[in-house]
């Protein structure tokens, strides 16, 4: 049998588009887990909530899901700050984040999923927008807008975050908090306040990532859990808290997953991310670009 070149190239391109989207999904985790050392395993739950909000506004008012998410991002920011405040007072301050803090986020993940199941059931939900459906064709290469639009939006979000972290005072303070809290105090900044802002920001990205997700695929409440492995795999592979590393790792995972799904069937795709994660943890815990 000839090697199906066209199928392969299309799988790679689909993977690149998927990878761009993964970068948006993971950017939040890169901030919370990578920079702040908060193991927020509930992050995918916030993403799914973002998807449902985009869904509600799209179905009832016919609004564009991505625009809805940008409008909702500040609300998510505030929600994130509140969650951090609870986390800080209950666990970080008492030095109990490793056991009870993790259990707390696990509870949040779980409760969110169950509430969504109770309200919306386990049926798949989807949104409607002009860019869902049409596909650009260049020769044998397919560029579905359903994937292209989220990918571009994701890259814009990602670039904005990167600029914020590297170019603003608060952004640099977030970087500093991940390295040395003492140095931060010398900068006359309160680490708890900086962490609160950064965590709020990480949750705000979930609003956008959620809307992009529901554009790409129909969702149901438990979809979020599939993303836990993906986002942490990417985050660790990208070298914890490095945004450029996260982007590279996202694209790598997107391509590998897409090729696996094309050639071995989609039922194997979830195992790719998690397998990746296990292998990374075992052999390259400092990430792809790490020393």
């Amino acid at each position: 049998m000839d090697f199906p070149v066209e199928l392969f190239i299309n799988a790679v391109i689909a993977g690149l588009l998927l990878g761009g989207f993964y970068a948006a999904v993971t950017s939040g985790i890169s901030i919370s887990f990578g920079m702040l050392d908060i193991v927020n395993i509930a992050h995918p739950a916030f993403i799914i909530v973002g998807s449902y909000i985009a869904y509600i506004f799209n179905i009832s008012l016919g609004m564009d899901p991505i625009i809805v998410s940008v409008v909702m991002a500040p609300a998510f920011y505030v929600l994130g700050m509140m969650v951090y405040q609870i986390y800080y007072l209950s666990f970080e301050k008492r030095g109990q984040e490793s056991l009870r803090g993790l259990a707390f986020f696990f509870g949040v993940l779980f409760v969110t999923e169950v509430v969504l199941i109770l309200v919306y059931g386990v049926d798949y939900r989807y949104v409607e927008a002009v860019y869902i459906g049409p596909t650009l064709k260049f020769g044998f290469i397919d560029l579905p807008l359903r994937m292209l639009v989220p990918c571009i939006s994701a890259l814009v979000l990602f670039a904005a975050l990167h600029l914020f972290i590297t170019r603003t005072f608060t952004g640099r303070a977030v970087m500093a908090v991940s390295q040395d809290q003492g140095a931060l105090q010398l900068m006359a900044a309160d680490p708890v306040r900086i962490k609160r802002i950064a965590f709020g920001l990480s949750i705000a990205t979930a609003a956008v990532a959620g809307a992009l997700l529901i554009v790409i695929q129909p969702i149901e409440p438990s979809v979020g859990r599939e993303f836990i492995g993906r986002v942490f795999a990417i985050c660790v592979l990208g070298g914890l808290g490095s945004l450029p590393g996260t982007l590279i790792a996202s694209i790598l995972l997107g391509v590998v997953e897409s090729i696996t799904a094309t050639f071995y069937g989609p039922s194997w795709a979830p195992a790719v991310a998690f397998g990746f994660l296990l292998l990374t943890l075992a052999f390259r815990p400092s990430g792809l670009l790490g020393r």
Binding site: L102, I228, F274, L278, L281, P285
Partner: peptide, 19 residues
């Protein structure tokens, strides 16, 4: 590795085995 990695890996294990 750090404790959190173990926790995350156990989440991963469940999905790999289920698949």
């Amino acid at each position: 590795l750090r404790g959190a990695f173990f926790a995350i890996a156990t989440l991963a294990l469940a999905v790999v085995l289920a698949t």
